[in-house]
Design a protein around this nucleic acid. Structure first.
Lengths: 156, 156
DNA sequence: TATTGTTATACTCTATAACTATA
DNA sequence: TATAGTTATAGAGTATAACAATA
């Protein structure tokens, strides 16, 4: 939602572009049965042996969200939980052969959706856009302000 | 959440910047007891006589979300519901004197948060960033892809 | 005592459905 | 019949709390 649409302001521009891009990404990945999270986990799990906690951190997810994401990957036959050889509490997420193939496809989809969005911009604008956003992400907009959450009551 | 952080991709950049800016905006507006939505409604209601539906459309909110937003503004003494003189179904949202003063403050806050974020960028980059985002919003990323929602069952 | 992964579930957010009054 | 506003609540998404196994 736009805080104020009278002047095209930064909040509106960022909210709107990220939201629309997200819906496009979800629709495109949905065609091969993936969510953005599943794609994210697949790609990072392929890079090297990683535990659920490590993958959760990389994808900026809660560990409980990670559980359902891995459940979905496992159910789809794209990844498996394997006991870590060094820590019996931890599970290594191993990508299956099918999972590796799907990850290749999903990365293509992600790249295409991004390329499609950026294609409408002149070359020089595209470059500056990415550089400026990166500057914001690593600089002034690096850290979210955490909201004061009301304490949750204990479960029954 | 970032779909993939290995290469700095557009999804991650937009999601992250919009999310962090949103938390900063929420924190800043929260100091004077406003949400972004309340600010949005106040500003648009000040411009001219508008009904809840009109304000909802401007802020890209559902009419039911508008009800609670106006409730909050009314409870805070910042706006009132007045019967429309031309349509007895409709309510004009009238901003109180206090509401107008708060809207002035909140607009200052919004402008400051935006200025702070953009201040870290070189002048030319800042301009191109805003132009490029605007191009995306009005062009390739104008329309969200609507997700297929499962039909909701009737209420009891 | 702290941490990994898990289950259960509290909470928030949003929007659909249903309703009343009016057009 | 259609629309403005309202109420109630379903459903999705997310994260906290508690727990078992292990460090």
């Amino acid at each position: 939602m736009a805080p104020n649409r009278t002047s095209p302001d930064l909040s509106f521009l960022l909210d709107r572009t990220s939201h629309v891009l997200r819906t496009r990404m979800a629709a495109a990945l949905g065609e091969i049965g993936l969510t953005a999270r599943m794609h994210c986990v697949l790609v990072h799990a392929l890079e090297e042996e990683r535990t659920q906690i490590q993958l959760a951190e990389l994808g900026d997810m809660d560990k409980t969200t990670m559980v359902v994401t891995v459940d979905a990957l496992q159910k789809a036959g794209l990844a498996e939980r394997r006991p870590s050889s060094t820590d019996r509490r931890a599970r290594i997420i191993a990508v299956t052969e099918k999972g590796a193939e799907v990850a290749r496809q999903s990365q293509e989809i992600v790249d295409r959706v991004h390329a499609d969005a950026l294609a409408s911009l002149p070359d020089d604008e595209r470059e500056v856009l990415l550089r400026a956003l990166d500057r914001l992400v690593t600089g002034h907009l690096a850290e979210p302000v955490e909201a004061a959450r009301p304490a949750r009551r204990a479960r029954q």
